[in-house]
Simulated assay, not measured.
Amino acid sequence: MTAAEPKGLLAGGAVARWPLPAFDEGEVQGEAPAALRQGTLRLGLLSNANSGRNRRQLDRLEALAQRYPHVTHLPTGHGGEVREALAEFARREIDVLAINGGDGTVARVLGELLEHEPFSRRLPLALLSGGTANMTAGRLGVRGSLTRAARRLFDWSAGRHRGACEMLSRPILRVRFADGRDNAYGMFVGAGAVIQGTEYAHRKLHARGLRDNAGLAIAVARTLWGLSRGDCRFKRPVRLCLSLDGHAVLEEASASILLVSSLPRLFCGVRPFWGEGAGAVRTTVIGGDAEYLLRRLPRLLAGRPGTSLCAAEGFYSYTGHRLSLRLDGELNLDGELHRVRRCHGPVTVERGGDFTFLRL
């Protein structure tokens, strides 16, 4: 891992995303879902051996996978092994790729697929909840505990209960850094109080075993309460500049919260985006001087601005194809923290590609 890479990539102590995307169930424009042939499908299962739940259950999962001849299970321990595993799956000509890990693992593998294209076609994906934070798999993956979900997936790929599967096409964001580090991928980018909320969840909640929905709900509520009361542990506005599709929309603005996503819904069905226009990049900024946040929260979370959520009151929302961002601080990309400096140039966020997820 180089100094430019984010901390904790594929590490066991994953940092919680805030807010974690809860993927919208509506149609998303993109590639048509991949067609699956009848009969047994060759399944490649990539497991992050360092992810939270995998550290306890990987041996049991491996024993289960060995009962299914059409399943190839490859555990990985670091980023380089991910690329090697994908190349091995390509040699075996698998039909479906399963990813077993947390949210950071999923984002890393999707980035590898987009950057290096190890397969001749875009494979359908199945997600298993093997990490510390598993919101992506929780909404788009195979339901149930890790081993139960794996058994259901292995049986399905063997041709059983084939009609029980939904196929959901969803976009992923590509984040380009001007300082030369590798592109990063994910479905949510946040800054400002998002970082403080992430730190609070990691410090106060994960140590007590509060993860996934329960821990996230507490972290979000505590962060919003801290912002509304001007608590300096949460209200630390950042200065930023935003351009959308080549046009400046915010110049040297103070922001308490920056939210960017390729999806209209975030955690618990929240819709904090109301900007009109085409494109996959949705952006909302809550200004550092925005007041009466709790009073305006229902409209903010529902994406219904009315007259109170407007630029004059410090609330901004945009939709476009390419976002250019300058700030000094940290960005949260699906739980991975990336430190950026405006002197290095802008960070660009755009649609990186679309994937088909198998929902079982």
Rank of each mutant, 00 (worst) to 15 (best):
N332W: 06
K235Y: 10
V260L: 03
G111K: 03
E313G: 06
T283Y: 01
A201Q: 03
A3Q: 15
L331K: 00
E350L: 04
F177N: 00
A278P: 11
R60D: 15
G279W: 06
A87E: 14
L258N: 01
L110W: 02
L360D: 04
E115H: 05
A150H: 03
G186S: 03
E5M: 12
A184Q: 13
E93Q: 14
V281M: 08
E25S: 11
K204N: 14
L297C: 03
H116L: 10
T2C: 06
G101Q: 05
W225I: 12
R322V: 04
Q29R: 15
T72E: 14
A158P: 03
A49N: 08
A4C: 10
Q66V: 14
E336Q: 09
V220P: 02
F267R: 02
G303F: 09
V28P: 02
M135P: 01
V349F: 07
T198R: 12
H344A: 14
G215I: 05
F89Y: 08
V349E: 04
V106T: 06
M167S: 15
H202G: 12
G144Y: 06
T356L: 02
R239I: 10
Q57E: 15
A85R: 07
N48F: 08
R160Y: 14
S51M: 09
G246V: 08
R265T: 13
L258K: 02
L301E: 01
D334Y: 04
M167A: 15
D182A: 14
A164G: 10
L20H: 09
L173S: 00
N213L: 15
L41A: 03
A164V: 12
F234A: 01
T72M: 13
